[in-house]
Amino acid sequence: IVYQPHLITVEEIRKQMEAVGFPAFIKKQPKYLKLGAIDIERLKSTPVKSSEGSQQKSPSYTNDSQVTFIIEGMHCKSCVSNIESALSTLQHVSSIVVSLENRSAIVKYNANSVTPETLRKAVEAVSPGQYRVSITSEVESTSKSPSSLSLQKSPLNIVSQPLTQETVINIDGMTCNSCVQSIEGIISKKAGVKSIRVSLANSNGTVEYDPLLTSPETLREAIED
């Protein structure tokens, strides 16, 4: 099943199957697809969920700070919705406004409990993991007076995003099994790499990795080195 995760979840699909009389269970965890030009054009005209509801549910902290990010890699309104939906559900984020035109996001958050760098990594982890994010503004405090609340610090819990993503890298120049073993041995030791399977016949390698620690481009450069 190919679906848009900001419109429906795997669990909702399963329940709809059972509602029409068919027992269903999730056999494999979702994997994100790489979008081509045609897919991107289709998504531009796809209606998306408004993130206003989730933003209204977010708590408003008395000592909010504000930071602005530049986001490279957004193509359509679905990208905007994905980022807003993912960040607005995170603990300690009170609001987020993403601009496709300006390639930016303005985030208000509780500075006592989360840092701009953690939020930056959270945006880069949003499906399909293609975004490159940088902090462009100084952190600004939006509170008018010191907070009278004592908030306990707790780690940011990115429950809506997987900790593992998969990428397929084309590898030219392999001639034997020794090449395969050499690449697998080197890449498997890289930070963030969870598994790698190299195919001599298909001239490629399939890598499972942590998007907070590495990226497909970094892995490609490591193989070429």
Rank of each mutant, 00 (worst) to 15 (best):
S58I: 01
C79G: 01
L35I: 09
V67I: 14
V93E: 05
L100V: 04
V97F: 12
N82F: 03
Q55A: 09
I38M: 14
S65F: 12
V93P: 02
L43W: 13
T118R: 12
F69K: 08
A111L: 09
A105V: 02
V93W: 08
E84Q: 08
E52G: 02
S50F: 02
E84W: 01
Q56M: 11
H75Q: 08
S104K: 13
H75Y: 13
I106R: 10
L90D: 05
F69W: 06
E84C: 00
E72G: 06
K77S: 04
T68P: 01
N112W: 07
S45F: 14
C79V: 01
L100K: 10
P47N: 08
S50L: 06
A105G: 10
T62F: 13
T68G: 01
C76Q: 03
P47M: 11
D39Y: 12
A37G: 05
I38K: 15
G53N: 11
S45N: 14
G36E: 11
K108R: 15
L43E: 11
I106V: 14
A105C: 09
E101A: 15
V97T: 11
A111E: 06
A105I: 04
M74G: 02
V67K: 08
D39G: 14
G36V: 08
S54M: 12
S113C: 14
